[in-house]
Design a protein around this nucleic acid. Structure first.
Lengths: 134, 134
DNA sequence: CAGTATCCCCAAAGATACTG
DNA sequence: CAGTATCTTTGGGGATACTG
């Protein structure tokens, strides 16, 4: 990152925020748009779930990656982790209020994507044709 | 990708879509949440811009990465590329209608992020404390 | 000016093994 | 069960050089 923290900027909001905001938003988007987070949040949206249950439902994720995905989501306050000290250990993951509220704007975006997927697909096809043609 | 395409699913929409939709949305989010796309879209939101002007404004991006970022955005129909065959060559990039409309839901999400950044920061601090304490 | 072509590097994904 | 530790692999980001 270069000269970041452009906090003094006036933030024209022509795009959803100033450049500092832009970085912040980009980071938040990155958090949910990595390979697994959406899927995990989706599973947890159905209700609390334990580590291996989650892993089984997702199917092909490695322990390491699921663990780090959950850690990231927990760090950002979207997911809670509750340990019940029994044997064998039991750990329940669930969406927090913040995580659940976060689903609102995500749903808005999701709806836009679904509504406009044909336009995006058309653009993709047109682009491919343009490339092939050239 | 493993056994994906759970197309037969009933899509409870508890999270913004079914699992096929989830993949689709995740991919779209990924497109704008990579290291540079938001910044590029932000610049173009202010008006059309040429390659090197864009590069200068962003500052520390490499040619290769800016080119591929623009190609991706063009492929997805968010950005248009207009070549004026003069010497030296002149290429103008601009947001398409689709790109501009896309900013709406993104702005919604951006506003949520800004409104809740303190909660997220608090979660981050609490998480760090928990880790340090343990 | 606006790129493509090449090579390098590193962070993150993945596989595997081990532990409280 | 729920992870961490370790090793390997991969591909995106970056620097540099070249071209229409």
């Amino acid at each position: 990152m270069p000269t970041p923290d452009n906090h003094t900027e006036t933030a024209p909001a022509c795009d959803g925020g100033g450049s500092a905001a832009c970085e912040h938003i980009s980071r938040t988007l990155a958090r949910i748009s990595d390979k697994w987070s959406m899927l995990v949040v989706r599973m947890l949206g159905r209700g609390p779930c334990r580590f291996n249950a989650l892993r089984r439902e997702i199917g092909e994720i490695s322990q390491k990656v699921l663990a780090s995905t959950l850690r990231d989501l927990e760090e950002h306050g979207f997911v809670s982790r509750t340990v019940t000290p029994v044997t064998p250990p039991q750990v329940e993951y669930a969406l927090t209020d913040l995580g659940r509220e976060f689903l609102d704007p995500v749903r808005t975006l999701a709806e836009w994507v679904m509504a406009n997927s044909s336009r995006m697909e058309a653009a993709r096809v047109a682009y491919a044709a343009r490339r092939a043609g050239n």
